[in-house]
Design a binder for these strands. Structure first.
Lengths: 341, 341
DNA sequence: TTGAAAGCGATACCAA
DNA sequence: TTGGTATCGCTTTCAA
């Protein structure tokens, strides 16, 4: 490349990274050669020499549901324009895959890391801390973050869902939960805590599956609950897929929503508003978490290190009340049609 | 690291890459140092020196829907165990983002590339071809692949959906399509071609939106069709999200599915079987495409170059007939209840 | 404004 | 089995 343009390698490097430092003539000569040769600088060599890799590592537990799409998009929207590449590794809700992924990413010497959740293994935490680079834990909050932390209190969110239903007059409140990732587990704990606080029994009202969730599972889990506790009047699901599956199961059996059974999901994915009736859901600020994580990192990388005043940010959550839930007073509980399974 | 274990850098390298070439004693000494120092080899330096980057670049047009999740999973399941890292870039259905993504990935000197679709820009094709590495185009098929190609004929799939509905007695067949990515456009073309071949008019029966699709859009587009052609008897949507939205819109209006309106989607995502009624959909072999792409690459990288007998593989598609479609004879078309919008 | 020299952290090749 | 040496392609530093 350098010889093709008749200049030294140093000048090529400068013409590309700092065009203003090169005379117009040489710059032009180099630009031409770049085009002619389809020259793309070797990122590995560049990163090795400069110790600036322009890489930020991001670990997500899943890509299946719409949950991490907004989040990743937000991160990219901040980082890419700043010339930073985001390396995304999907660890499929596995701690050991996460450990491996962190090791792998460290081999690329990222300038910062963004990880989902606060439940990394001890080794993962150690690797992240030892790296000396900024680390952001998202989606959840903790007393003892590795470095920066933005998320929400899932225990509190689970409890809030129960309070919401309780305020509408519900007492037999079920909870459905799939593959128990730590955050779903906390939502479950919040549900249990609040039910206990209300003095309500959860016997036969909790449906759990070890498999990754999908819409069909929502129906299956709810069917079990119905078999155990036919009087169930409301369902809180650990995510929207299960809520949709529950809604379908109700349609299948001729159970009216919200008159006979109320449903509240979690995440507020786009299909919630489209469903019939629209699904009430606990909405979380996924884009905001991604944006904040990326911006914080950018400041730290550029600004040379002034950390945010507080390491942990709680972005909270909000309940989007829609047609799948309603105050129990308006319900005619008397006749509940019960179709065949 | 080397000095900490009291050996030369070369030996460290060997102890890690080819442990059998190093004496037990030194290996142990090095292993200890690795653990103590949390040593992770610098991938950039290693790749630069060995010209083996162990990277395969993958470009996907979206992560929003469940479509690319299986596919990516399949690719990783083949490549990761072989010690290859998959770098995934999401280009959000943008040709220019795709060009940039390819340039970026080339800077990492991947050993192969997997791209979705066959509609890359001229520059993208040029970059891929010039790279000299194996390239697999997936999801669609073409007469003139860059290198290897596995996919299905989307035009034919669109036509097949129409034939399926036609065979059931439908004549007023609508088509809904969102953000027109090239494959959706081909499905649309196939729909049009087949409708023409049947001598059926599509006037007022095509609903299109430039925005990325979501469930709600399905309802909106179908509502428009209903306004224009109230006699519409079947709907073929370019993806399952729109199909679900259409189903919800029918529920909202008291239109019976499949008695009054039949619905067929595309992709056969998991929620299709859970819906009420279950959604008929055109099923595609996403995992198989990912697996084939990854395996082919592995052979080429390892085996030193014996290309598959044929560069292009057509994995086809299949129509999963479910409750949202039914032969029109069984329908009581007379009374179609029509609720308020 | 340009270039020469040194080096980033590993690996390939050859010698001991 | 082990290590010295050159090198991968680029950037940094310093001198011209």
């Amino acid at each position: 490349m350098a010889r093709h343009a008749g200049v030294s390698p140093v000048t090529v490097s400068r013409a590309i990274r700092h065009p203003e430092m090169v005379s117009e003539e040489l710059r032009k000569r180099i630009d031409d050669a770049v085009l002619k040769l389809n020259y793309i600088p070797n990122h590995l060599a560049s990163a090795l020499a400069s110790t600036r890799t322009h890489i930020v590592g991001v670990i997500v537990p899943s890509l299946t549901n719409g949950v991490f799409d907004d989040y990743l998009g937000a991160i990219q929207d901040v980082l890419n324009p700043a010339g930073i590449q985001v390396l995304v590794l999907n660890v499929r809700y596995s701690e050991s895959e996460e450990e491996k992924a962190i090791e792998t990413l460290m081999g690329y010497h990222p300038e910062a890391m963004i990880v989902a959740g606060v439940d990394q293994t001890e080794r993962s935490r150690q690797l992240l801390r030892n790296s000396g680079i900024p680390v952001v834990q998202t989606m959840d909050i903790t007393e003892s973050p590795i470095d920066l932390n933005i998320g929400l209190n899932h225990d509190e969110a689970g409890a809030a869902a129960v309070r919401f239903l309780h305020a509408q007059g519900h007492r037999r409140i079920a909870h459905l939960t799939a593959r128990a990732d730590p955050r779903a587990r906390r939502r479950h704990a919040g549900y249990q805590r609040q039910m206990d606080a209300f003095g309500l029994s959860t016997k036969g009202l909790v449906g759990a599956s070890p498999r990754p969730s999908d819409v069909a599972m929502g129906g299956e889990l709810f069917a079990q609950i119905l078999a155990d506790v036919p009087e169930v009047s409301a369902v809180f699901t650990c995510n929207d897929d299960l809520a949709l599956g529950t809604l379908f199961e109700c349609q299948r059996r001729g159970i009216r929503v919200p008159e006979d059974v109320a449903i509240i999901g979690f995440n507020d994915l786009d299909f919630c508003t489209a469903a019939v009736p629209p699904l009430t859901s606990v909405s979380t600020e996924r884009r905001e978490m991604g944006t904040w994580a990326a911006r914080s990192i950018l400041e730290l990388i550029r600004g040379g290190g002034k950390r945010p005043r507080q390491p942990t940010v709680d972005v909270g959550f909000s309940i989007k009340a829609r047609g799948s839930t309603a105050a129990i007073e308006t319900r005619s509980r008397a006749k509940r049609p019960r179709a065949k399974a």
